[in-house]
């Protein structure tokens, strides 16, 4: 598993449940001292072990924890860089949804060895979509679910996002866009900070 994902899990656990819990989880799962490095790779089994230990210690189902992590990745002020990269996907939440097909390819442009599941968005009636996630690490579909919720909020859209089905082969997320302009959303400028 790519270090960026492991590092995201580490930061999420530390910022959400405290440094002590992370230290406890890291010890139990035998993460090397100093934690994960974002630019190195680790065995998948280690990632699964960290999540299993964390879910047990916190007492939250693993799937729910992954969803919370997705929300955290978009909405935590310390991770503004990731929110900005996602906002390059489009001017509105609808455009952003249409950009999801390209997300794995965009990600590879930035980090060639970071592989995301293949994503395919299909319309399913007025304002309704299904997003197929195939391949890659199965947990990412749930992270994505949390991220989509947070992105809808970021754009000021009102949307319902659910997991229709999940399995080893992949997961399907259902998205219902109820109001694209529910509130003002967060501001986004193409210019990076400090320019």
């Amino acid at each position: 598993m790519h270090g960026l994902i492991n590092r995201a899990i580490q930061c999420f656990l530390r910022d959400t449940y405290g440094a002590e819990l992370w230290a406890d989880v890291a010890r139990a799962a035998q993460v090397e001292r100093g934690g994960f490095e974002a630019m190195l790779s680790y065995p998948d089994a280690l990632t699964d072990k960290v999540l299993a230990v964390a879910a047990e210690r916190v007492g939250v189902p693993r799937v729910m924890m992954l969803e919370d992590m997705g929300t955290y990745l978009v909405s935590d002020p310390g991770l503004e860089a990731l929110r900005r990269l996602l906002r390059f996907g489009g001017e509105t939440f609808l455009e952003f949804l249409y950009s999801l097909d390209d997300l794995p390819e965009r990600t590879r442009l930035a980090v060639p060895d970071l592989h995301l599941p293949d994503l395919e968005l299909a319309e399913d009636g007025v304002g309704a979509f299904v997003l197929q996630c195939r391949g890659g690490w199965p947990g990412l579909a749930f992270v994505l679910q949390g991220m989509l919720r947070a992105m809808a909020d970021d754009y000021g859209a009102l949307a319902l996002i659910d997991t229709a089905e999940g399995g080893e082969a992949g997961a399907t997320l259902s998205i219902r866009l109820l109001d694209a302009r529910f509130h003002a959303g967060k501001s986004f400028s193409l210019a990076a900070r400090g320019q």
Binding site: L4, A38, M39, A81, R84, L85, F88, R106, L109, A110, V111, A192
Partner: peptide, 12 residues
């Protein structure tokens, strides 16, 4: 997008 993504990677 690439400029910002690469800057973030370079920072890491």
């Amino acid at each position: 997008y690439l400029t910002e993504a690469k800057a973030a990677v370079a920072d890491e």
